[in-house]
Design a protein around this nucleic acid. Structure first.
Lengths: 208, 208
DNA sequence: TTCATTTTGTACCGCTTCGCAAAAAATTAA
DNA sequence: TTAATTTTTTGCGAAGCGGTACAAAATGAA
């Protein structure tokens, strides 16, 4: 279907590209330390245009994070629910996370939620809710996977799936902080591998 | 020995109390969102007095964190190195951490380093170094304890002590984030307890 | 060509932020 | 009483911050 030509000045920005650029700034500087001028420079949009297109600063952040979640969700879900091997699946899941925690040129950025807004989360309920939601999403995914593993006999039937899921989530939280603190990628990979192996050992998995 | 009376206007602030009050502000709002005016209100010191007494904003933060570390170190060290039972010691260690992550009236503040400055850590090398140092301190303590455990036969002699220590550190990182996101204290306690039990299971501890 | 519409850019606003110079206050020494 | 010293307070300045009103630009419609 042919789109009707629109009147008026043509839009000069690409919404997706702008949100990606904005998230880059938030990830590098932290939420509060990122100003509208920083976002304007990165997106090549003047502040009134940012405001008209996306809303206020927190709206820009939230939409950028939503897009990031959508982009990274598929690979993580595939790792957990389509890879038959629990161990391989968890390893792939954390490999996807570590990949996401570094920029294209190896800059250690961490998680755009866990690493970026924890400072502000205590004083600002809206920001706190965003942090809690992100933590809840991972908890949910991991708990579902470990429940399936117990039901399928991949781990002990009576394993503490909530505890195991929380341990795996703790690895994700730790990776976010360590990346942010500058821990080199190979070291994060080693930490993740050891953690997964030990979790499976604790879970009573067949082979480890 | 009698102290010589000093000339000049008497000092009106107590350095320790001022640093405690300042840290309270940083923990509630996050590093960047805490202004000198916030610190001034909380400490009852005007900005020039703060500057003269402690230095710039980051110096105030760093000294407040140093004092906090000194205050919390003893209980954690006691738990790890003076309690003979590894399990009891780890449980006490994380109980001390959870206690420290809440204010006197139950406000969930998290860790004054892990939860407060991760946002700014990527862009500011000085802040990044502070985060890395805090992570390194915990890593060091936990690794030393697990090494002793392996040597003493409390866990398997060939246990991966680095991996186990990193798992325990991950719990600390996770508690800091979850407290910040508003997770209730009893839930944090349950997560910590399960995590420690599972780590010991993975470590090949005698009883669990 | 002029008008209507949509988007972008300029200019401005009120407030916040950090840091500092100098005056004022509060002490002891002379 | 005056002077010296130390600390605190007042006042100031430059820059930053988030947001908005309105002008300008770039299109298609009439």
């Amino acid at each position: 279907m042919k789109s009707k030509p629109t009147r008026g000045r043509p839009r000069e920005y690409d919404p997706e590209a702008a949100l990606t650029a904005a998230l880059g700034e938030f990830r590098r500087r932290g939420y509060t330390a990122t100003s509208l001028d920083h976002l304007s420079d990165a997106t090549k949009m003047a502040r009134p245009s940012l405001y008209a297109a996306f809303g206020n600063k927190f709206e820009i952040y939230r939409r950028a994070v939503t897009r990031y979640s959508e982009q990274t969700a598929e690979r993580r879900r595939h790792a957990l629910f389509e890879e038959p091997s629990l161990q391989k699946g968890l390893e792939d899941y954390f490999a996807a996370i570590i990949d996401a925690y570094f920029s294209g040129d190896g800059e250690p950025l961490g998680c755009p939620v866990l690493s970026v807004i924890s400072g502000e989360a205590a004083a600002d309920p809206v920001i706190g809710a965003e942090l809690a939601a992100a933590i809840g999403r991972s908890d949910s995914l991991l708990q579902r996977r470990m429940t399936i593993a117990a039901e399928a006999g991949e781990i002990a039937a009576d394993a503490d799936v909530r505890g195991l899921a929380a341990m795996l989530a703790a690895l994700q939280h730790s990776l976010a902080l360590r990346a942010r603190a500058g821990t080199p990628r190979p070291e994060l990979i080693a930490i993740a591998r050891a953690h997964v192996a030990l979790v499976l050992k604790a879970a009573g998995a067949g082979r480890s």
